[in-house]
Design a protein around this nucleic acid. Structure first.
Lengths: 350, 350
DNA sequence: CTGAAAGCGCTTACAG
DNA sequence: CTGAAAGCGCTTACAG
């Protein structure tokens, strides 16, 4: 990069010292009005843009915040990112994001997660990030321990690490499972299939725990089914395997619930059920997902019952906790945000 | 931030000079194997992490790439971001993103765009970004001119600025409009409604141009309708206003096409049409969107005909162009990537 | 193969 | 209110 005008060039052109130029930028109230004006005019003329590297060197910290998200195809993380970015902007801080490319498929398949979470942790540590939000789908402890002293506040979002030495922002995943069961129990349904991925994925494990607890409490019999991925086509395949049993029950006048860990799975179930002459939604089968997609797709001819996840609030809260860390007697917090049901036609009929 | 161990601390502990520690990190082949090992061990023991600020100061450039996207709720930009980030990672470079919070609603409403594009341009210029991808929905020229000399290569994605002094990566928006009309003309349809937003949004303007050209060529009569936003509910409202005319035509045995600038609009049309007893899809009315959502929602009980946009390729190509800029006799390029139709049940019946 | 030294652009007490 | 000077952590010729 060709050398751009530096603070010395501005000082020379304005006939002041470099310290005065620096003060014009950082403490303008210290300058005589005429001096300030002359310096600012010179900055404009020269097209001077301060390099943040100098300040970062001195402070051993930059003032930008950084956010690592696992996967932008997941609307939860898009919501978290927006909540974080807008809250940061409102506080006058910039936030940049990195996508670590995490795929829950790896975990489900038992493969080592092939993401770049630790690479980005290192990258932001070298940049002396002024605060880091780590949105994790797997335990980030080892990666964070490595950079702990080089990045000021760290907040972990969406992963509950045992013995965490940082603030954590979570949603109440057990409540997700409980609410789903309570909803169908309220409809008088006593038999359900619960389609999820293996418990190596922490939110899946916690939702299952909540689901089982509510099922026992409400007297709902639940058959658990494993999905290999959270896609509509997997949802279709699994449902195809269940229609026989569902139709048998329907002929006996019994309703069945299909509870899917993700809306994408649930969406895949719909066409399979509609294609079956004996199965009406929601009279014979009710369907619900559990990660209500905020995205404005208005995705169906029938609205899908789902659970609204507090992604935006999680991101916003994480940024607030970053700011709270500058308070000297701050103690790390573990916040668990509530979820709520969004009833739709696939369970209530409208 | 408490002072972390610096290169001097490592040098002292390893009994070498700071230059040698630097070489261990940047040119390890220059060191005697034993020296190298001793230095690396010391780095490990001390938990030393290099600060990139020093190098940025010297080079007047950092090695990270940065990407500004207008809006993560738009799947096009999520695709671009993924294409860019994976291509960068494959080339051993890190890429960070910023969301400028652009809303096309502002433009459509005639309001000044209230985004943070220029703020982030300035932020990345202060960080001496090693390369910048600017995904723009409005003309970025003034913002870029301001930072032109402080950021090495700049590539603009998705905005065709007149007289651009940089590489540009575009999709063929005129082709989007042409393909849509050709598709319905191939089905023998001669009457269509075209629902778009005003031409202040550049892609909308270009698609309209392509649409008109194809309509003239194929003898299709098109009635143009203005939408205030690209949402399903706006699509529903507009369609509600059209069902009378559509039903009249259906009773005369004439098919009509509804072409929507965005899939979200088109999705909103579906339930309105289904609710009308005289209108069958696709026998009386065919429906298509024009920004095929890559996201894995499997969004409907009937697949929506749409146009596949080359978002991933645009992001990947933009990163390749960034690298190409380091070639001394590089000339700025303007690349226009093709689009293609994805036929679905809403026009072909399956 | 290794070390000593200059310098990148900035901020911050301190002196005046 | 302004200036002179030290120093942040690093890289890079250069000398040996």
């Amino acid at each position: 990069m060709a050398r751009t005008p530096n603070i010395g060039a501005v000082a020379r052109a304005a006939g002041v010292s470099v310290g005065t130029v620096s003060n014009a930028l950082n403490s303008p109230e210290r300058l005589a009005p005429e001096t300030l004006e002359r310096v600012l005019d010179t900055i404009d003329e020269l097209g001077y843009i301060r390099s943040s590297a100098g300040r970062t060197l001195i402070r051993n910290a930059s003032d930008g915040l950084s956010l690592i998200v696992p996967d932008l195809d997941n609307s939860l993380f898009v919501d978290i990112a927006r909540g974080a970015q807008l809250t940061a902007a409102a506080a006058g801080r910039r936030l940049v994001m990195a996508n670590s490319g995490f795929s829950s498929r790896d975990l489900v398949a038992g493969a080592a997660p092939h993401d770049t979470q630790d690479e980005f942790l290192g990258y932001f540590a070298e940049a002396r990030s002024g605060g880091m939000l780590v949105c994790a789908m797997r335990d980030p402890t080892s990666g964070i321990d490595r950079i702990r002293n080089h990045v000021r506040p760290i907040v972990v979002v969406n992963y509950d690490a045992p013995g965490a030495d940082w603030c954590t922002v979570l949603m109440d995943n057990a409540q997700v499972g409980r609410i789903a069961v309570d909803h169908i129990a309220d409809l008088g349904i006593t038999q359900a299939f619960y389609v999820s991925i293996p418990d190596v994925v922490q939110p899946a494990a916690e939702r299952r725990t909540g689901m089982r607890e509510a099922a026992a409490r409400r007297g709902v019999t639940v058959t658990e089914v494993d999905a290999a991925a959270l896609t509509a086509s997997v949802g279709s395949d699994i449902t195809t395997g269940l229609v026989g049993a569902l139709a048998d029950r329907a002929r006996r006048g019994e309703r069945t619930a299909l509870l899917f860990l993700a809306d994408d799975l649930a969406i895949g179930a719909i066409p399979v059920l509609r294609a079956h002459p004996d199965l009406q939604i929601p009279d014979d089968v009710v369907v619900m997902g559990m990660d209500g997609d905020h995205r404005p797709t208005g995705n169906d001819w029938m609205t899908m019952t789902s659970i609204e996840l507090p992604g935006y609030e999680m991101g916003a809260e994480a940024v607030r906790l970053i700011s709270a860390e500058s308070d000297p007697d701050h103690a790390h917090e573990r916040e668990v945000l509530p979820v709520r049901i969004r009833p739709g036609a696939t369970t209530t009929g409208r």
